[in-house]
Design a protein around this nucleic acid. Structure first.
Length: 873
RNA sequence: GGGGAAUUAGCUCAGUUGGCUAGAGCGCUUGGCUGGCAGCCAAGAGGUCAUCGGUUCGAAUCCGAUAUUCUCCA
C-alpha cells in the first residue's frame, strides 16, 4: 500500500464511523503566545479542550502537518542519526469532543490496525496508565478492561506517568493515555527477546505507533487536577511510522515518503544510499529538513533572523551543513529537491504546487548565504590555527565564539580541528553555552496565574465591533500576568466592541467604565479564539457590567489603512500579475505594511500605476460589501482571495469593495465606503527576502502630511536656490560650480603651501648636520600637518617645529627626518610632550612625527625656545 | 525578549597596542604595446571608513546611541 492510499484509508475508516474529516491546520501558529509551530494534532482543537470555543463537530478525524523543533518537543538534533525521528511529520488522529470515550476509541483503533491495515495482532502491544500516588490517581483499569476484549493480558502493559499520562503544558487539559506499540523485528529476534521487554525502551523496531489520550482532567497552576465535565478523546498516530510498518520497512526513510529525495540525492552526488553511514545520515537529514522548510515557507513563514523564521533558517542550515560536510556539496543544492516534493505531496497539499517557484527561490537564496557564512567561519578558524600553532587545543571560548557569533556549528569545528591535529575544549564550549542559556531564560520569564471566574457566561466572546464602538459588557473572568517585573491583567468579556489583533490589524484601545471605576484597555489580543483585553489594573470590587468604549480615532485611522491594503492587494495583482500573494501584513493607525511574493523590484512606474489604481477606487467611493457566514465554496465562487497559511473556519467572512475589483476573506474592520480613505500614498518599496517585497504606505491625513512634507522640502530648496525656473538644472549647476571651486581652492592652497615652504626653507639653521627650522604660523593643525609632510619630502636631515594657532587654540607640530631618528635616537613623540607643557596641553606621536595641542597661545614662543635649547644640546 | 558580532572604493576584503596625512585584488577611464583564450605595460579616477554624539594633541581604530545585516539562546 503506498502512502497516499494509507492516508486515504484512514479518512475513509473514520468517515464510516461518522467523523468529520477536518483539513490540516497551517504548520505555523498565529495567535498563540505559547506556541510557534503546530507540534501535535490537537493544537487546532485547543480552544475546544480549554472550553473557549464550542465544538462544531463532536467527532473529527484528520491528518495534521506538525513540526517539532522547539520547546518541550525538540527532536531536531536527533533527526537523521536514527531511522524514525523527524522535524516535520504528519499526525493522523481521531477526536471526540464530549462524545464517545475509551470504549469506542480502543475498539476502533484495534479494528483499523488489525482488520483494515491487517497488521498481525500478535506483534501489537498496548500500554495503560499504572496510576500515580503523588497525583492520587488510580490505575486506568477502565481502559485495561476494554483492551482485554481484544488483546491477551500478557501484551497489556502498565506504563508510568512519564509515558502514559499526557499533558498539554504546565497547565490545561490532560489525562491518562493508552499507547499501541508494534514489534517489527524478525522472527528470530522476537524469539530471543520477547517484545514486552522492549516496549518504551527506544528500540528502533519496537515502536509506539498510536497514542490514545483520554482527556478527563484540567491541571491548575497550583499543580492540582480538576475533573472535567466533558471528557474528550485525542489520538495521534505518526503517519510516517505507520507507512513504515505497512510497507514492511525497517526505517521511515525506506518508505515511499522519503525514498524519492534519497534517490534524487544519490543522483546528484553519485553516492549510493546504504554504503556509508555518514552519507546516509546526511541524506536522511536533508530529506527530512527539506519537507519541514518547504511546508513552512508555503505556510508563509520565511527564513529570517528571529522567532519562528529563525527556527526555519536553522533547520535549513542544518541540512546545508550535512550536505557540505558529508556529501561534499559546495553549491546550493537543496532547492533542487523541491520539484520532487511537489510531485509527491502536491496532490494532497495544494499549497506546495501553488508556491513551488517561491519555495525554490527562497531555499536557494538561503543556501547561498549560509555557504558564505561557512566560508567566513573557515577563514576565522584558519587564522586562529595560524596564530596558535603550538598549543594543539582550540579553546572552548573560541569554539563558542565561532558558534555563537559566526553560526559555525561546533561539530564542524571539531571535524576541522581533527584534520589539523587539534582538539576542541568541549567543556569550555559547553560552559559558554550554559551561560548563554541562563541569560536568555532569566530574560524571558513570564508568569501566568489561573483564571478567576467573575460571572458564568458564554464560551466565545461575541464581537460587536463591526457595528458599534460602544456597548454594555459583562466581565467573565480575568487573570494576572507577570513578565519582567511588569504586571498586567487579561480580561475576558461576554461581548465586546474591541477588535483583537489578528489578520495584521492591531488591537483596539479604549476604556471600560462603571460609576467611579474606569479601566483603560491598553490592547486587545487574540489567544487562539479567545479575545483578551489587556488592562494595567483591576478594581477592588467588580461591577456587574461596564460601558465599553473603543478609541474611535485610532480605530478609524486603522480601518482606513486596512481597507487601503485590500485595494492595494488587488492593484498589485492587476499591475504585477496574479503571482502576487500576501506574505504578511501589518495595519495600524499610522501606516500599512504589506509583504508579498514578487521576483523583481517594483519600478517607479509600477508604483505610480498602483497608486493611481488605488486612488481611483477611493474616489469612486465604493460601498463596503460584507458577507458573513459564507461557506468556503461560495466565497471562492465570488472570487475572494484566501491566504495560504491562514486557518479558516467552516463559515468565512468576505469583505468586498466592488466584488469584481477587490474581494478578500477577512475578519478585520473596514471603512463603510472607500472615500473615507482620502489619499493613498506608497512611502517605500524594498526586498525583505528572496522573492518577497515589502511596501509601506500611508492614507488620509498621514498621506497628506507626507506629501506636504515633500512639497515643503522642495519649497525650501527652491527658496535657498533663489527660486530658479528649473530647480534640477540649478542644483546641477551648483554642484558643478562647487567642484570647480574646490579644485581652485586646492590649487591655491598648494600655491600657498609652496610660498610657506619657501618661507620655511629660508629659515633653515644649520646645527651640526641638522636642517633646523622653527616657525610660528596662524594656521590650523591639518594644514600644519600637510606642510610638515611636504617639507619632509623636500628636505633631508630635517628637524621642523611649527608652532601654530587658530580659533584661540595653540598647537605644535614636529617633524624629524627618518635618518635622524635612526642616527640620533630622536623621538618626536617624547620631545613634543616636553614642549606641550608650555602651551598647557598634551601631545604625542611617533618617532618621526608628533603633534600637540593646548590652550595657551602665548606659550608658543617659549615652546619654540625650548625646542632650540633641546637641539643645541 | 536576551547575548555576541559586522558595516572601509562599483565588487571581494586588508588595515596588529589610537599616530608612516586610508590600502590590495577585481572592475572602470585614458594612453601605449600585442594576431591567442581573464592579453601585457603605464598613468588615472573613485572613499563624509554606516549615521550621530563623546573621549583625545590626534579616531577607520576607544566609548555611547541609532540604523541595517549576520549569528546564538529563549
Amino acid at each position: 500500500m503506498n502512502s497516499i492510499s494509507i492516508r486515504q484509508t484512514f479518512f475513509d475508516f473514520f468517515e464510516s464511523k461518522s467523523h468529520f474529516i477536518e483539513k490540516s491546520a497551517p504548520m505555523v501558529v498565529k495567535n498563540d503566545p505559547t506556541l510557534m509551530f503546530t507540534n501535535a494534532g490537537m493544537n487546532q482543537f485547543k480552544d475546544i479542550f480549554l472550553g473557549n470555543s464550542p465544538a462544531k463537530n463532536p467527532r473529527v478525524a484528520n491528518t495534521q502537518k506538525c513540526l517539532r523543533v522547539s520547546g518541550k518537543h525538540n527532536d531536531l538534533e536527533e533527526v537523521g542519526h536514527d531511522t524514525y525521528h523527524h522535524t516535520m511529520f504528519e499526525m493522523l488522529g481521531n477526536w471526540s469532543f464530549g462524545d464517545y470515550f475509551k470504549k469506542e476509541a480502543i475498539a476502533w483503533a484495534w479494528e483499523l490496525l488489525t482488520e483494515v491495515y491487517k497488521i498481525d495482532s500478535k506483534s501489537l502491544y498496548v500500554t495503560v496508565f499504572e496510576g500515580s500516588r503523588e497525583e492520587n490517581l488510580e490505575p486506568d483499569d477502565e481502559a485495561r478492561e476494554y483492551w482485554k476484549q481484544f488483546v491477551p493480558e500478557e501484551r497489556i502493559l502498565y506504563g508510568s506517568k512519564k509515558d502514559n499520562f499526557w499533558e498539554m503544558g504546565d497547565t490545561g487539559p490532560c489525562g491518562p493515555c493508552s499507547e499501541i506499540h508494534v514489534d517489527i523485528r524478525s522472527y528470530e529476534e522476537k524469539n530471543k527477546i520477547p517484545g514486552q521487554q522492549l516496549v518504551n525502551t527506544d528500540h528502533p523496531l519496537v515502536i509506539e505507533i498510536w497514542n490514545l489520550v483520554f482527556i478527563q482532567f484540567n491541571r491548575l497552576s497550583n499543580g492540582s487536577l480538576q475533573p472535567l465535565k466533558a471528557k474528550h478523546v485525542d489520538t495521534g498516530m505518526g503517519f510516517e511510522r505507520l507507512c513504515m510498518v505497512l510497507q514492511g520497512k525497517l526505517s521511515n526513510y525506506d518508505t515511499d515518503i522519503f525514498q524519492p529525495y534519497i534517490r534524487k540525492l544519490s543522483e546528484l552526488t553519485g553516492k549510493t544510499y546504504g554504503k556509508n553511514e555518514e552519507a546516509d545520515i546526511a541524506m536522511r537529514v536533508i530529506s527530512d529538513h527539506l519537507r519541514a522548510v518547504s511546508f513552512a515557507i508555503a505556510d508563509g513563514e520565511l527564513p529570517s533572523n528571529n522567532k519562528a523564521g529563525y527556527v526555519i533558517r536553522r533547520i535549513l542550515r542544518r541540512a546545508v551543513r550535512y550536505g557540505y560536510t558529508f556529501l561534499d556539496f559546495r553549491e546550493p543544492f537543496i532547492h533542487e529537491l523541491v520539484p520532487v516534493m511537489v510531485e509527491n505531496m502536491g496532490a494532497f497539499f495544494p499549497e506546495l504546487p501553488a508556491q513551488k517557484e517561491l519555495i525554490m527561490r527562497v531555499i536557494a537564496e538561503e543556501e547561498g548565504t549560509f555557504l558564505k557564512t561557512l566560508a567566513t567561519g573557515i577563514t576565522k578558524f584558519e587564522n586562529y590555527i595560524r596564530n596558535n600553532p603550538e598549543n594543539k587545543i582550540i579553546e572552548g571560548s573560541f569554539a563558542f565564539e565561532l558558534f555563537d557569533t559566526y553560526g559555525f556549528p561546533v561539530d564542524l569545528t571539531q571535524l576541522m580541528a581533527r584534520e589539523k591535529g587539534f582538539t576542541v575544549d568541549m567543556q569550555g564550549f559547553e560552559s559558554g553555552m550554559k551561560q548563554q542559556k541562563e541569560r536568555s531564560r532569566a530574560a524571558a520569564t513570564m508568569e501566568t496565574q489561573d483564571w478567576i471566574e467573575l460571572n458564568p457566561g458564554n464560551m466565545e466572546t461575541i464581537f460587536l465591533g463591526y457595528e458599534s464602538l460602544q456597548a454594555e459588557v459583562k466581565p467573565l473572568r480575568y487573570r494576572k500576568v507577570t513578565s519582567k517585573g511588569k504586571t498586567f491583567y487579561q480580561l475576558v468579556l461576554d461581548k465586546t466592541p474591541f477588535y483583537a489583533e489578528s489578520g495584521g490589524q492591531v488591537g483596539d484601545r479604549g476604556t471600560l467604565k462603571s460609576g467611579e471605576i474606569t479601566l483603560r484597555i491598553l490592547d486587545t489580543q487574540k489567544e487562539n479564539n479567545l479575545s483578551v483585553h489587556i488592562v494595567d489594573k483591576i478594581p477592588g470590587q467588580w461591577p456587574d457590567s461596564f460601558i465599553a468604549t473603543v478609541d474611535e480615532n485610532k480605530r478609524k485611522l486603522t480601518e482606513n489603512n486596512h481597507s487601503a491594503t485590500h485595494l492595494m492587494h488587488s492593484a498589485l495583482r492587476k499591475v504585477l500579475g496574479t503571482h502576487v500573494q500576501q506574505k504578511g501584513s501589518l495595519v495600524d493607525e499610522k501606516r500599512l505594511r504589506f509583504d508579498f511574493s514578487h521576483f523583481a523590484k517594483v519600478t517607479p512606474e509600477e508604483i505610480e500605476k498602483i497608486e493611481q489604481l488605488v486612488n481611483e477606487r477611493i474616489r469612486a467611493n465604493i460601498q463596503q460589501e460584507e458577507h458573513r457566514e459564507l461557506s468556503m465554496e461560495d466565497a471562492q465562487q465570488m472570487g475572494a482571495i484566501a491566504l495560504f497559511g491562514e486557518k479558516y473556519g467552516e463559515k468565512v467572512r468576505v469583505i468586498a469593495f466592488d466584488k469584481d475589483y477587490s474581494a478578500e476573506l477577512c475578519g478585520g474592520t473596514h471603512v463603510h465606503s472607500t472615500g473615507q480613505i482620502g489619499l493613498f500614498k506608497i512611502v517605500s518599496e524594498g526586498a525583505i527576502a528572496a522573492g518577497i517585497r515589502r511596501i509601506e504606505a500611508v492614507t488620509g491625513r498621514v498621506a497628506e502630511d507626507f506629501v506636504n512634507g515633500k512639497i515643503h522640502t522642495l519649497n525650501q530648496v527652491r527658496e535657498i536656490l533663489k527660486n530658479p525656473k528649473d530647480i534640477v538644472k540649478a542644483l546641477q549647476q551648483l554642484q558643478d560650480e562647487n567642484e570647480t571651486l574646490n579644485k581652485q581652492i586646492h590649487q591655491l592652497q598648494k600655491a600657498q603651501a609652496g610660498s610657506m615652504i619657501d618661507k620655511l626653507k629660508s629659515r633653515v639653521q644649520k646645527i651640526g648636520n641638522l636642517n633646523f627650522i622653527t616657525v610660528k604660523l596662524g594656521i590650523d593643525p591639518q594644514m600644519a600637518k600637510d606642510l610638515a609632510f611636504e617639507m619632509k619630502k623636500q628636505m633631508d636631515n630635517l628637524f621642523l617645529v611649527i608652532g601654530h594657532h587658530a580659533d584661540g587654540k595653540a598647537g605644535i607640530t614636529l617633524m624629524i627626518s627618518d635618518n635622524l631618528v635612526n642616527e640620533k635616537q630622536f623621538h618626536a613623540g617624547n620631545i613634543i610632550r616636553e614642549l606641550a607643557s608650555e602651551i598647557e596641553g598634551g601631545g604625542g606621536g611617533q618617532p618621526h612625527f608628533a603633534t600637540a595641542g593646548g590652550k595657551n597661545v602665548d606659550g608658543l614662543d617659549k615652546a619654540i625656545e625650548k625646542a632650540i635649547e633641546f637641539v643645541k644640546k
